[in-house]
Design a protein around this nucleic acid. Sequence first.
DNA 1: GAGGGTAGCGAACGAATGTTCGCATGTCGA
DNA 2: TCGACATGCGAACATTCGTTCGCTACCCTC
Lengths: 213, 213
Amino acid sequence: MTPSRAAGEPTRDQIVSFLERCADRGVPPTVREIGDAVGLRSPASVHRQLRTLEEDGRIICDGDGRSRSWRITKPKSRRRGGGMIPVVGRIAAGEPIDSLEGEEDFLPIPPNGFASSGDVVALRVEGNSMTDAGILSGDYAIIRRQPEVENGQVAAVSIDGQGTLKVWRRTGKGKISLEPRARGFEVIRLGRGSGEVSVFGRLVGVARMYGEG
Amino acid sequence: MTPSRAAGEPTRDQIVSFLERCADRGVPPTVREIGDAVGLRSPASVHRQLRTLEEDGRIICDGDGRSRSWRITKPKSRRRGGGMIPVVGRIAAGEPIDSLEGEEDFLPIPPNGFASSGDVVALRVEGNSMTDAGILSGDYAIIRRQPEVENGQVAAVSIDGQGTLKVWRRTGKGKISLEPRARGFEVIRLGRGSGEVSVFGRLVGVARMYGEG
DNA sequence: GAGGGTAGCGAACGAATGTTCGCATGTCGA
DNA sequence: TCGACATGCGAACATTCGTTCGCTACCCTC
């Protein structure tokens, strides 16, 4: 009889996922702790899956017979919330740029300082429409992904798939203004029939790195 | 007979140091591993020191009787190069501020992204003399400590013990200009007899965090 | 020198842990 | 239907590991 376990994610993926979470927290789990986490009551069941995962190269065993020695093969640099903020693309601070996503690089800044939780990414800013807000072309905009922002907050907005960084202001029912923060740039006014507009996220931080020049 | 152990650092400090190193690497050690690391051949010896350290509040035991459960009380935020940049004080972007150092806080940004090596600290910017360079009051200036900078680079400069953030320019023999980057601020010109001037470091990055507002 | 405190050792015990073995159940294709 | 296969269980077994106990040695102070 197959035991009544939470359906959906396969057992082996659950184990890998649990090991990832443990790697984030610091202490690797024991075999029985893994069993508790994924719903396997016998350490033998866990152990067999661990061996299989090892053959697949997804996990490795640090010591042989030592306690808490099973761990993820690679620290999974795609992991968010552990150390890096992924740079998922570029964003305009002038004319909207078409490519808003497409993971490119990693910014060595833990999101903890910018947002305690949630999905935080970085976008490289191109353009000068926000220079008066201290956001220059080449800066990294730290964006927390969220579907809505409040009036006056700086938002990464997607207009017909093109992304731009502006101050968000709802001026009326279905009417939105996207305000630049620099001289020489016009306010973008959006109403009905202005195309598809969606908030990508809210600006929670800015990071800039100077080279040797 | 006291065994021949490496003299110098007391055993207890060695243990704490070893636990710190393990915390960095990820896996907490077993009692016997600690013994091997610090030169204690009996787990009993290690265990007694662990209990003493626990009473002193320097370490804590996560689980009681579980393996690998001894760890450092606090992750020692003073550590540099591992995760945080220390915020060592405030710096003026307007009128010089007297307090340049005095460790206050930690910015959750690893220096790796800003400088591969060296002593990197953060200073909280106060004032608006560098706003045209995208450095606003309240930002964190990421400073790599170095005694000299080149013309045109932004430097944290100490004038008679007062710190300020400006563009550094040597205008002649013994003559220095400190240029603001904002309207309404005057260039500070320094020559012989202008007091003691020293470069605190070079600006290698800027970080800004927005709150909920 | 006596005595207390500190710090080390080895031995031992019990619990935790990794690992193996045999068995049962469900799936899938021949 | 039958057998190979995957997966789970419980029961061991062998280490590992945390912890305790008694002992010895050194360093003090009195």
